[in-house]
Amino acid sequence: MPSLKDLRTRINSVKSTQKITSAMKMVAAAKLRRAQEQAEAARPYAERMERMLGSVAASLGGSEGAPPLLAGTGKDDVHLLVVATSDRGLCGGFNSSIVREARKLIRELTAVGKTVRILCVGRKGRGQLTRDYGSLIVDTIDDVGRPRLGFDDAQAIANRLLALYGEDGFDICTVVYNRFQSVITQIVTVQQLIPFGPPGDGEEEEPGESANGAKAVYEFEPEEGEILETLLPLNLSVQVYRALLENAASEQGARMAAMDNATRNAGDMIDRLTLDYNRSRQAAITSELIEIISGAEAV
């Protein structure tokens, strides 16, 4: 049976924890709004880039002469997984769900005899992956997007990828991140970056793209091939940027939900402890009274 003093200390400590979690929830809500705005603002560029890339690729026709970023290396032996997580914890299942998906992918790929390499973005992912797959991690990129996520951050990561691709470090590059659905749902998404396939609909790009290209016949200046050479690396950055933005919004959403839960739980706990506290206080008073009365009777 804890003493009254013990109970008082516990109530106080839970109260201060609650203050922290509710403050964190508020901060996460503000950051979430900003992240969502940023993601919203980045959409026009990504859309237009996709459209343009579609028409250039369609006009270039078959894969011959297409740069390796579009056509691939012709092999699929070495897979590079970009595992995008957060740097900070306390955001519910956000990081674990990404890592779980990554683990699953790694298992599947190694089972069919592929080589897997990992590029970690964010400290938390590395922390969880080092134990089992430490030897596979090529590199870790920390502190992405601090104080503010910018296109430069995405470009830096894309440049790393391009450099690795250039020296034949991998054949297929996939990114694992959380797509923001709503504050309570984030969907773990696996997206192939290199060779580039349009996200979402279907894995073959031919049918959609040729229908797209039929709309307008473009002149190209310079040649299609050369335009693709500038467009594709840029597009890689855009895709990475999009993944990072989605991830940032998801992280804040997950943190907000987790902290909301924690605040509620702390409230419940305070209620329970207060009840215990009052009960034992009354019990003490009652027993004191009984002692006094029986003492008086004995006289």
Partner: peptide
């Protein structure tokens, strides 16, 4: 329309626009 990766910067009707193409 002028679009940067971070946002849509400009979207206005114009009479003419001169763009520095690479050629």
């Amino acid at each position: 329309e002028l679009v940067s990766p971070e946002r849509l910067l400009l979207s206005v009707p114009v009479e003419m626009v001169v763009v520095p193409g690479s050629e």
